[in-house]
């Protein structure tokens, strides 16, 4: 999370990585390291100070340079500023003997996308640094558009019917929650707002199965526009994400928002 928010999002690092194809592999539950990645770990040694390792490879996959994901020896990733992360990453990337005649690609924005569904931007708007970096998820719809068909009169919508969207409304980098919500509750109202528009609105509760993770209580408001066979949606989930700080045994309340937009445009 800190690598993504502080390093990979920084303009200096984005510029340094223009020649590169960027990839990620994450180990889940002590699974074996893949055969094509294990040699990279073997070459870089066992102890590097953190569980994040970066590898610079040439166009044939040959290892040119590797470095620890966190700068310095301090095991606390929060100890370093965004600029310190970025400077460290740029210095390490530039140490690799990459061929100079590499074509630089344009750094155009390319967001995750789907053929027919929604895109969600989940964020903690009042947090800074890595915690403030938005998450972007996409969902290919199945029955959601049918569920939200134009209402001739106001009708209730069970929030569970939008579980595939709402379960993703959780923040990044919170070690206590590393997976989507497991339950969605709430009753929304779909109300006509003119001949071709409707408003979806109501309170929701998103929950996990274990008692250690408190539920998220929030609101979901969206504007739907109906045009022939196409539905356009613009909406927001908003609420306070409760996180228990185990180190200090206290609850923190972080404002969380999710902007939801239909795709394609």
């Amino acid at each position: 999370m800190h690598v993504r928010g502080s390093s990979l999002s920084h303009p200096k690092v984005i510029e340094a990585l223009r020649p590169f194809i960027v990839a990620f592999w994450g180990q889940a539950n002590d699974e074996a390291i893949p055969k094509d990645i294990q040699p990279l770990y073997d070459a870089s040694g066992r102890h590097t100070g953190s569980n994040v390792r970066c590898f610079v490879l040439d166009y044939q996959g040959k290892l040119l340079h590797w470095f620890n994901g966190f700068p310095g020896n301090n095991p606390n990733p929060m100890r370093y500023s965004t600029d310190e992360y970025a400077t460290y990453f740029c210095d390490e990337i530039n140490r690799a003997p990459v061929l100079l005649k590499v074509k630089l690609r344009d750094s155009k924005l390319s967001l995750p996308d789907v053929k027919n569904g929604v895109r969600l931007f989940i964020r903690l708007p009042e947090q800074r640094g890595s915690y403030g970096t938005p998450v972007v998820e996409v969902v290919e719809n199945k029955t959601e558009w049918a569920t939200l068909g134009y209402p001739k009169t106001a009708r209730e919508i069970d929030a569970q019917s939008l579980t595939r969207w709402l379960r993703l409304c959780y923040p990044p980098g919170v070690n206590e929650q590393l997976e989507p919500y497991q339950s969605v509750h709430g009753t929304l109202t779909l109300t006509p707002a003119g001949e071709h528009q409707a408003i979806l609105s109501g309170n929701i509760r998103l929950g996990m199965s274990d008692v250690e993770n408190p539920p998220f209580d929030g609101t979901f408001d969206a504007l739907l526009t109906y045009n022939r066979n196409k539905v356009t949606l613009r909406g927001v989930v908003s609420g306070l994400y409760r996180r228990h700080d185990r180190m200090h045994d206290r609850d923190m309340f972080w404002r969380l928002t999710t902007a939801i937009e239909s795709r394609p445009e």
């Binding site: 690598v3 993504r4 990979l8 990585l17 020649p19 590169f20 194809i21 960027v22 990839a23 990620f24 592999w25 994450g26 180990q27 889940a28 539950n29 002590d30 390291i33 990645i37 990279l40 770990y41 569980n51 994040v52 390792r53 970066c54 590898f55 610079v56 490879l57 040439d58 166009y59 996959g61 040119l64 994901g69 990337i93 690799a96 990459v98 061929l99 590499v102 074509k103 995750p112 989940i122 970096t133 938005p134 998450v135 972007v136 998820e137 990044p172 590393l178 997976e179």
Partner: peptide, 20 residues
Amino acid sequence: RPIFLVCTTQLKDAGNLREG
């Protein structure tokens, strides 16, 4: 073109570094 590979280990979930 060269590759920049980021790897994480020792976590319960693999996560998705790109999406966040």
